[in-house]
């Protein structure tokens, strides 16, 4: 069950006359994964999502969501998939609650469950005291929050967010990311398209980098980093110019350490985990010195930039 792909595409291609928006895309997402779509504007992220939703027809190739073709069996797909579009809008003359009620009713929810869910969700997205206000008077960020609630109201098995955090304040972003992570904990498969790399790095188990319709790289952030720089996720910088070979060997023995190199007057240890404690022990044992260390977490940004410097 676990290795069944919730979202799967094979050689998926979308052409707008001559222009290829999505080019021969093969994508596989497992249940419970939080997958991030990255890529510059016009890379084809949204187009891919639209094909997943059955909102636009693929020129060629195959799409499966929960094993169903979104074009053939839209209802089955849309029953489990929650989608928050790029530019979300609500009925301006309805209140936040009424908008959510409408979505709920379209999902066949009875008014009792619906009422409870709405109360809970509005609280979670921080719109509890705004529930009776017409959406027309909402700020962009408030609409965005409401959009999250709107996706969650049907308790989807798959949630697709197209740039969910654009326009939300930092605190709100944090709340939204927590919500998404909570969803992932409940085995909800999440697909996020975003330009905010920090956030993607924080919540995504895997990311795919799009460029000109192609997915140029896919995998966990660590793996991407290693692929790109042959490096681990953490850099631990020791202000020591030279280490003896014994120490070197000891350090390399620490599980998770990927590489060790000397840059200028510093020694940089690259590892998959934060191994500063072990490293401190090793150095203390072998040299008797208590050194100060600087731990640097590796940033997705670097990977991202690297891909686009190359291309």
């Amino acid at each position: 069950m676990n290795n069944k792909f919730v979202i799967e595409t094979q050689n998926l291609t979308k052409k707008y006359s001559k222009f290829v928006a999505v080019d021969d895309l093969n994508l596989q997402i497992l249940e419970g994964e939080v997958f991030g779509f990255l890529g510059p504007n016009g890379a084809g992220k949204t187009t891919t999502i639209l094909m997943l939703m059955g909102f636009c027809e693929p020129t060629s190739g195959l799409v499966r969501v929960n094993g169903n073709d979104p074009a053939r069996e839209p209802i089955k797909v849309k029953k489990v998939v929650g989608y928050m579009p790029e530019k979300i809008g609500f009925y301006d003359d309805l209140t936040a609650r009424e908008n959510l009620e409408y979505t709920g009713r379209l999902n066949g929810l009875d008014s009792k469950t619906l009422g409870d869910r709405i109360d809970k969700l509005l609280e979670e997205v921080g719109l509890k005291d705004k529930s009776g206000q017409v959406v027309g008077k909402f700020s962009h960020g408030m609409k965005q929050r409401l959009g999250i609630a709107d996706v969650m109201i049907k308790q989807p098995g798959v949630a697709i967010f197209d740039e969910p955090t654009s326009g939300i304040d930092p605190e709100g972003t944090d709340q939204v990311l927590n919500l998404i992570q909570d969803m992932a904990k409940q085995k909800v498969t999440v697909l996020i398209s975003s330009h905010q790399l920090h956030q993607v790095q924080r919540i995504c188990t895997r990311v795919g980098i799009f460029s000109k319709g192609k997915m140029v790289a896919a995998g966990s952030v660590d793996k991407l980093g290693r692929d790109a720089f042959r490096k681990g996720k953490f850099n631990i910088i020791l202000p020591v110019a030279q280490l003896t070979d014994n120490v070197r060997d000891d350090v390399m023995k620490i599980p998770g350490v990927v590489a060790l190199e000397t840059i200028a007057n510093n020694t940089v240890v690259t590892a998959d985990d934060d191994i500063s404690k072990q490293l401190e022990d090793v150095v203390l044992r072998s040299t008797g010195l208590r050194v100060q260390m600087k731990v640097e977490e590796f940033q997705l940004e670097e990977v991202y930039m690297k891909y686009f410097k190359e291309s």
Partner: peptide, 15 residues
């Protein structure tokens, strides 16, 4: 234009 259509059509209804 109000952005409701995508949201509406992502609910389990026929187009």
């Amino acid at each position: 234009t109000s952005g409701n259509l995508s949201r509406l059509l992502s609910q389990p209804i026929y187009r």
